Amino acid sequence: MEQEFGINQRGDPATLFILQNERFIMAVTDYGATLVSWIDRKKNIDIVAGFDKVEDYIDHVAHFGSMIGRVANRIRNATFTLNGTKYYVSANKGANSLHGGWNGFDKLMFHGEENGSEVVFTARSPDGDEGYPGNLDIRITYTLDEEGIHIKSEGITDHATLFGVTNHSYFNLNGCGTIKDHEVTIFADAYAPNDESGTAVGTLIECQNTPFDFRQPKAIGTDFACGDEQISMNGGYDHHYAVSGSGLRDMAVCKANGLKFVTRSNLPGIHFYTGNFLNGAYTGHNGISYGRHERVCFEPEYYPNAINYEGFAQPILLAGEKSVQIIEYLLCDED
C-alpha cells in the first residue's frame, strides 16, 4: 500500500510504502530509503523512532531509520586516497565527514516500487556527489517476513569509489521510555576506542574486563556510571565492535518486554549507539519525544575511517563490480 508522505526540500512528493503480515507492519519511504515504522502487532507497539511526514525528516539531524552512505560513520579530516588520487569529501562534522556528508543517502530521493513482500528503492549518486568519485547506482531492497526485516543494499560504479552502508534505525522494545534495562549481547571480542571527535582511532581493544564486554547478556545501562573515560566522553556507548566471523551472521541480540531482537549482517562489524545525544527535541510517532538513552542503534558497518587505516577491511568498490551488503533485523518472542 502506498500513501502520500509530504513534499521534500526540492519540491518532490515523497511516498510511504506500507507492508504487513500477521506479525508486523512495516513502513518505509523513498526519502532516504528510510525505515519509518515497525509495528509489532502482537505487542501493539512501534519499536522504531520516526516521523509522520517527510518534512520532519528534512529538518532533523539524527538520521532516524535512514540508509547511510556512501560511507557510514566518519572519515577523518574528510579526505582519503584511492588508487593514488586524493579525494576531499564533505566535512559536515567538524573537520570530519560523517555518514556520507551534508547530503548523503539519508537526503537522497530514491525511486520506490512495491513488489509483494518487498519494496525496492533505486537511485544514482553521481560522480562527485559529496566529493566521492564515480557514478554509483544503488539498489536497496526491504523485505518483510514473519521473522522481521531484511535489507539488501547493492552498489555498482563506473569508477573506483567507496561504498559501505548501514541502517540508522533507533529501537526501543518497550515502544518508549529508557533503554537502560534492555539486555544486550554483542558477539565481539574487541571494540574501537574513539578520539575527542568521536572517530575510531585505528586500533581495537579486547572487551574482556572492560565495561565494553557484552559477550554475555548485560543491561545496557549497567556501566554508564563506571567512570570509564570512553563512556564518560560519549555519555554512553557510541562505539564500533569487530564482530567475530565473516559472512551473514548474528551480530547482536537485544531483549526486553518479552521480545528478542537480533541484528544480523555480512559486514565486518557493528556500531553500538545508546542515544546519548537525543535530548527530547524530536517528537515522532504517537506524540512520543525521543530523549537521552531512550533509543538504541545497532548499525552494521565497516571499521570507521577504514580507508585511512591499514589492517581493516575497506569499503572499496571497483568499477564494474557489485557489492552486496545485508542487514537483517529479526524480532520474536523471548525464549
Rank of each mutant, 00 (worst) to 15 (best):
residue 36 V to C: 14
residue 164 G to N: 08
residue 227 G to R: 01
residue 331 L to V: 05
residue 279 N to L: 00
residue 315 P to Q: 10
residue 290 Y to R: 03
residue 57 Y to E: 10
residue 271 H to Q: 15
residue 296 V to Q: 05
residue 8 N to P: 01
residue 198 G to A: 09
residue 133 P to Y: 03
residue 180 K to S: 13
residue 174 N to G: 04
residue 21 N to E: 01
residue 176 C to T: 10
residue 122 T to S: 13
residue 95 A to G: 07
residue 120 V to Q: 11
residue 177 G to I: 08
residue 227 G to Y: 11
residue 14 A to W: 04
residue 113 E to Q: 10
residue 80 F to Q: 00
residue 233 M to V: 05
residue 58 I to L: 13
residue 169 S to R: 09
residue 283 T to P: 03
residue 3 Q to E: 15
residue 165 V to Q: 13
residue 43 K to S: 12
residue 157 T to P: 03
residue 323 S to A: 15
residue 199 T to L: 14
residue 266 N to T: 14
residue 176 C to M: 04
residue 60 H to I: 06
residue 112 G to L: 10
residue 150 H to V: 08
residue 206 E to W: 11
residue 45 I to L: 08
residue 4 E to F: 15
residue 281 A to V: 09
residue 263 T to K: 06
residue 81 T to P: 03
residue 161 T to C: 02
residue 153 S to F: 13
residue 256 A to I: 06
residue 189 D to Q: 00
residue 83 N to D: 15
residue 264 R to V: 11
residue 188 A to Y: 08
residue 141 T to W: 05
residue 85 T to Y: 08
residue 261 F to N: 10
residue 210 T to Q: 05
residue 4 E to T: 07
residue 89 V to K: 04
residue 326 I to W: 11
residue 244 S to L: 09
residue 294 E to D: 05
residue 49 A to F: 13
residue 59 D to L: 11
residue 68 I to N: 09
residue 109 M to F: 02
residue 30 D to Q: 00
residue 44 N to H: 04
residue 102 W to D: 05
residue 18 I to T: 15
residue 253 V to W: 08
residue 160 A to V: 06
residue 95 A to S: 14
residue 320 G to M: 04
residue 163 F to V: 04
residue 331 L to D: 00
residue 82 L to I: 00
residue 2 E to Y: 14
residue 204 L to T: 14
residue 312 F to T: 03
residue 151 I to L: 15
residue 73 N to I: 02
residue 163 F to G: 00
residue 163 F to T: 01
residue 313 A to H: 05
residue 85 T to C: 07
residue 202 G to Q: 04
residue 194 N to A: 08
residue 256 A to C: 04
residue 29 T to G: 09
residue 284 G to K: 01
residue 120 V to D: 14
residue 331 L to H: 01
residue 216 Q to Y: 09
residue 322 K to T: 14
residue 183 E to T: 13
residue 173 L to D: 00
residue 244 S to F: 12
residue 229 E to G: 03
residue 15 T to V: 15
residue 282 Y to I: 00
residue 242 A to I: 03
residue 74 R to L: 08
residue 261 F to G: 08
residue 86 K to Q: 07
residue 146 E to C: 09
residue 148 G to V: 08
residue 134 G to W: 12
residue 106 D to C: 12
residue 210 T to G: 12
residue 122 T to D: 14
residue 102 W to I: 05
residue 212 F to W: 02
residue 217 P to H: 10
residue 218 K to H: 06
residue 237 Y to S: 02
residue 328 E to T: 05
residue 41 R to M: 10
residue 133 P to W: 02
residue 84 G to Q: 03
residue 185 T to H: 00
residue 89 V to L: 11
residue 244 S to C: 12
residue 295 R to G: 15
residue 261 F to R: 05
residue 213 D to V: 10
residue 69 G to Y: 03
residue 333 D to N: 11
residue 73 N to G: 13
residue 29 T to C: 15
residue 194 N to V: 08
residue 183 E to C: 13
residue 236 G to P: 02
residue 329 Y to G: 01
residue 89 V to H: 04
residue 219 A to D: 12
residue 208 Q to V: 09
residue 54 V to E: 06
residue 122 T to L: 07
residue 316 I to S: 04
residue 83 N to S: 10
residue 127 D to I: 01
residue 275 G to M: 01
residue 289 S to Y: 02
residue 214 F to L: 09
residue 223 D to R: 07
residue 253 V to Y: 06
residue 15 T to Q: 12
residue 214 F to K: 00
residue 60 H to K: 10
residue 77 N to M: 11
residue 278 L to W: 03
residue 333 D to S: 01
residue 264 R to H: 06
residue 135 N to Y: 00
